[in-house]
Amino acid sequence: MILFTYFKKYLKYINYFLINFRIRSIMTFITSFSITFFLTPIFINYFHKKKISQIIRKDGPITHFIKKKTPTMGGIIILLSIFTSVIIWSDLSNKYVLYILFITFLYSIIGFMDDFYKIILKNSIGLSPYKKLFLQSIANIFFLLFITINNKKEQYINIIVPFTHKIIKYNLNIILYIIICYFILITVSNSVNLTDGLDGLAIMPIIFISLGLAVLSYFTGNIYFSKYFNFIYIKNSTELIIICLSIVGSGLAFLWYNTYPAKIFMGDVGSLSLGCIISIIAIFIKQEFLFIIMCGIFITESISVFIQLVKFKYNKKRFFLMAPLHHHYELQGISEPCIIIRFWIISLILILFTFMIM
């Protein structure tokens, strides 16, 4: 009888530990950070032995050829730590959590195939852009159809009027809503992929954006804060903070090894998947407008590639010395660490600006 009483007492503490959201948030960060921090060196050594390394663009900056022996596909560890920490510490009955784990898994397969083809074929292309876009489109359309059919009341887009307290809410039909969400997913995921061309360039903005989304998730999931900031209240969206903090934890640990000079790259399996996760979170909390501002660095990189292609097809001349934009600055003679830090600063400013216009 005494043992049973003690057991009930300790079970109460354990339940409190698991239910308390703050504790779960902290433990998510610690778990994801620890997994990535301790597994990455093992991963680096293993890939060195197997001679699985980054394939460098032949037309890229000359300074990048010294990176050809650097291991890639570090995104596998990032995703492993995110999935593990989320499964352990999140509420798996929450539909948003399950949706995100599902679409991230699909994107990780596409990214892995792309990296695998690069390594096997020994070229920097991997899957052709059309094949990659086709696979992403299938995954996106299937996923978006599923969530819209099962969540018919959530097919709307919020547009926040800057520096005012006005939010314009557009109720959309299924097709238009899917098209908008599709372009957000495709654009951001591929933009992160394009940005991941210098050591640590993409992962730090991902961390900043994840922290920003964590704050927005808290505001939208709290009935009092959502009313104060004039957000649409979305029940149970605070659980998305767990996912955001798992990205922050794994991202910071990965940056330890990915910072200049990088000992490992995340590869497409990491960049495509992370771009997908943050996009889906923004869609779920109905903050697509603010999210686009947060992703200013990624969007700018994509625009630079688009401008370069259009300009070259029009008159066979280049607008930039090289695209994406970070390569243009490299060829201008700016050092790689300088470009990286400046892009980080701009990314942080964009996050702060996002909260200003709220």
Score class of each variant (00 low, 15 high):
Asn45Pro: 11
Tyr46Gly: 07
Phe47Ser: 04
Phe47Thr: 10
Phe47Asn: 13
Lys49Arg: 14
Lys49Glu: 09
Lys50Gly: 00
Ser53His: 00
Ser53Val: 04
Ile55Cys: 06
Ile56Asp: 08
Lys58Trp: 14
Gly60Met: 00
Gly60Glu: 06
Gly60Lys: 11
Pro61Phe: 04
His64Ser: 12
Phe65Trp: 11
Phe65Arg: 15
Ile66Arg: 06
Lys68Tyr: 08
Lys69Leu: 03
Lys69Arg: 07
Thr70Ala: 00
Pro71Met: 02
Pro71Thr: 13
Pro71Glu: 07
Thr72Phe: 15
Gly75Trp: 09
Gly75Ser: 14
Ile76Lys: 03
Ile78Met: 14
Leu79Asp: 13
Leu80Gln: 10
Ile82Asn: 08
Phe83Arg: 07
Thr84Pro: 12
Thr84Arg: 00
Ile87Lys: 11
Ile88Tyr: 04
Ile88Glu: 08
Trp89Ala: 02
Ser90Ala: 11
Ser90Lys: 05
Asp91Cys: 05
Leu92Lys: 06
Ser93Trp: 06
Ser93Thr: 15
Asn94Val: 09
Leu98Lys: 15
Tyr99Trp: 14
Leu101Met: 14
Leu101Lys: 03
Phe102Trp: 15
Ile103His: 00
Thr104Ala: 10
Phe105Tyr: 07
Phe105Lys: 08
Leu106Asn: 12
Ser108His: 07
Ser108Arg: 03
Ile110Asp: 01
Phe112His: 01
Phe112Val: 14
Phe112Ile: 08
Phe112Ala: 02
Met113Asp: 13
Met113Val: 01
Asp114Cys: 04
Asp114Pro: 01
Asp115Ala: 01
Tyr117Gln: 09
Ile119Leu: 08
Ile119Met: 05
Lys122Gln: 09
Lys122Arg: 13
Asn123Met: 13
Ser124Val: 04
Leu127Arg: 00
Pro129Glu: 11
Pro129Val: 08
Lys131Gln: 14
Lys132Cys: 05
Leu133Cys: 06
Leu133Asn: 09
Phe134Trp: 12
Leu135Asp: 10
Leu135Lys: 14
Ser137Asp: 03
Asn140Ile: 06
Ile141Asn: 03
Phe142Gln: 00
Phe142Glu: 06
Phe142Lys: 07
Phe143Cys: 02
Leu145His: 12
Leu145Ala: 04
Leu145Met: 03
Leu145Arg: 11
Phe146Tyr: 10
Phe146Trp: 09
Ile147Ala: 03
Thr148Leu: 01
Asn151Gly: 03
Lys152Glu: 15
Lys153Gln: 09
Glu154Asn: 10
Glu154Ser: 06
Gln155Ile: 10
Tyr156Thr: 02
Tyr156Ser: 06
Ile157Arg: 00
Ile159Phe: 12
Ile160Met: 00
Ile160Gln: 11
Ile160Trp: 09
Val161Cys: 05
Val161Asn: 02
Val161Ala: 11
Val161Leu: 07
Pro162Trp: 05
Thr164Glu: 03
Ile167Leu: 06
Ile167Met: 11
Ile168Arg: 04
Ile168Asp: 02
Ile168Met: 03
Ile168Trp: 06
Lys169Cys: 08
Lys169Met: 02
Asn171Lys: 10
Leu172Tyr: 14
Asn173Glu: 04
Asn173Thr: 11
Tyr177Leu: 09
Ile178Glu: 05
Ile178Asn: 05
Ile178Leu: 03
Cys181His: 00
Tyr182Ser: 13
Phe183Pro: 07
Phe183Asn: 13
Ile184Tyr: 03
Ile184Lys: 02
Leu185Ala: 03
